[in-house]
Simulated assay, not measured.
Amino acid sequence: MTDWTHRYARINGLDVHYVEQGTGPLVVLLHGFPHLWFSWRHQIGPIAEAGYRVVAPDLRGMGGTSGPTEVREYDVDRIVADLIGLLDHLGEQRAVFSGLDFGLFAAYDLAQHHPDRMRAIIGLENPFFTPDDTPPLTRAARHARKRFNHIHYFQQPGADADLDAAPREFLRKVFYALSSDYHYLDVWKKPPGTGYLDALPETPALPWSWLTELELEFYVAAYSRSGFTGGLNWYRAMDLCWQYRRSYADRKNPVPFFFLGSTEDVDLQAWHGQDPLNQLRHHHADLREVRMLDHAGHMMQLEKPAQTTAAMLDFLAAL
């Protein structure tokens, strides 16, 4: 941690915060929601020590990076421009991008628009854009008629205020629910109209084996400052992104691709169809390697940090 350098820059109209360590070929680490650059804390140092320049930004609207309040400002073209602007600011032509959740989808979009700016993608948990003729927010609304659905909940005007009023409770509960210590799909058993804080499970007292009180407080402090609107806007823009991506829905990712998943990840269980690992070659033109970690959920970088880092280093070495 002592070798991390916090930097701030004006990129694509945003005040951007990122953390940097090391020298060498560039590796950019992209988080999801409700995460921050800090979710890569176990990976930044070892990857830098292996001979790479590692940059972990806070993405648009989260952590120390500013974000507009308008939902349309979270469409694909804006996010891709953020990543190109980051590369230009860093003075780098290309990078390996690794991502999870929304961060990985941003890398997939970048590969479709600017493959020349990417050496490879290391994908965690989310293997591809899942083909669907129904807009995602419509699908979530249909699901929410029968049971709680977090994507639909995030569309409600009061969701921001609910989470802003209880950041510690929300982050503690959602991190636990997304881990292998809980079966996230049990959240869907709650009835329609349930608030997210009530739908999420109660948790054991901290510290857990993979998260301490101090680490949780880092997230709490960051989201207490920024609020949750920026993060929720990534969900609110899902239909805009779906429409934008239809122009390349049948086009494979053209850059080298490595995949790292976990056996108890909710996204692999529920969001990418039947047997998603066997579908990877239908979505990636240059699939290099696939690995799975046992006994880890969606929080794999935190739950299994050594194994996650080792796999990423192997993938980088293979390039």
Score class of each variant (00 low, 15 high):
residue 4 W to V: 02
residue 5 T to F: 00
residue 5 T to K: 14
residue 11 I to M: 06
residue 12 N to M: 06
residue 13 G to K: 03
residue 18 Y to N: 10
residue 27 V to G: 09
residue 40 W to E: 02
residue 45 G to R: 13
residue 45 G to Q: 11
residue 45 G to W: 00
residue 51 G to P: 11
residue 51 G to C: 12
residue 51 G to Y: 06
residue 59 L to T: 03
residue 61 G to Y: 07
residue 62 M to A: 10
residue 73 E to Y: 05
residue 74 Y to A: 04
residue 74 Y to W: 09
residue 82 D to M: 11
residue 89 H to S: 12
residue 96 V to T: 15
residue 96 V to G: 07
residue 108 Y to H: 14
residue 109 D to L: 01
residue 110 L to C: 11
residue 110 L to V: 11
residue 112 Q to N: 13
residue 117 R to W: 01
residue 117 R to Q: 07
residue 118 M to S: 02
residue 127 P to S: 14
residue 129 F to V: 12
residue 130 T to E: 14
residue 136 P to T: 09
residue 137 L to R: 07
residue 139 R to F: 01
residue 139 R to W: 10
residue 145 R to P: 09
residue 146 K to T: 15
residue 150 H to E: 05
residue 151 I to A: 09
residue 154 F to W: 14
residue 157 P to H: 04
residue 163 L to S: 11
residue 164 D to P: 06
residue 174 V to I: 15
residue 177 A to G: 11
residue 181 D to P: 03
residue 191 P to A: 12
residue 191 P to W: 06
residue 192 P to G: 09
residue 195 G to L: 00
residue 204 P to I: 00
residue 209 S to D: 15
residue 212 T to C: 08
residue 212 T to P: 09
residue 214 L to C: 01
residue 221 A to H: 13
residue 222 A to Y: 00
residue 224 S to T: 15
residue 233 N to Q: 12
residue 234 W to S: 07
residue 234 W to I: 00
residue 236 R to E: 06
residue 239 D to M: 06
residue 246 R to M: 09
residue 253 N to S: 13
residue 253 N to M: 12
residue 256 P to I: 09
residue 260 L to T: 03
residue 261 G to N: 08
residue 265 D to W: 06
residue 268 L to G: 14
residue 269 Q to K: 13
residue 274 Q to G: 02
residue 288 R to V: 04
residue 291 R to W: 06
residue 292 M to A: 07
residue 296 A to R: 11
residue 305 P to I: 06
residue 307 Q to A: 15
residue 310 A to G: 08
residue 316 L to D: 04
residue 318 A to W: 03
